[in-house]
């Protein structure tokens, strides 16, 4: 069967103005135990790539510039 993609709201929000991924930072990507964050190679900013967040928050706690905000996913709010 062919595979389709479906839109989802991203519970983990990155403030692009604060994110310093262009300087080589990958802290949030490295600390996420679920491997769901990634750096957008075009924009050089972190983003939530997979809708599998556990709202455990090391990404938010460890980001050196305070760019990450973890929201409780909509289905659980």
């Amino acid at each position: 069967m062919p595979i389709i993609t479906q839109s989802k709201s991203a519970a983990v929000v990155i403030d692009d103005a604060k994110c310093i991924a262009e300087k080589g930072c990958t802290v949030c990507v490295d600390v996420c135990p679920l491997d769901i964050l990634a750096i957008d190679e075009g924009r050089k900013k972190a983003f939530m790539k997979y809708d599998e967040c556990w709202y455990c928050m090391p990404c938010e706690a460890d980001c050196p510039t305070g760019a990450v905000k973890v929201n409780i996913p909509y289905l659980l709010r």
């Binding site: 709202y55 455990c56 928050m57 706690a61 973890v70 929201n71 409780i72 659980l76 709010r77």
Partner: peptide
């Protein structure tokens, strides 16, 4: 234990 717990309760 689960630092997002306060956030969960607050929204409700």
């Amino acid at each position: 234990e689960r630092p997002s717990r306060g956030r969960f309760h607050e929204r409700r």
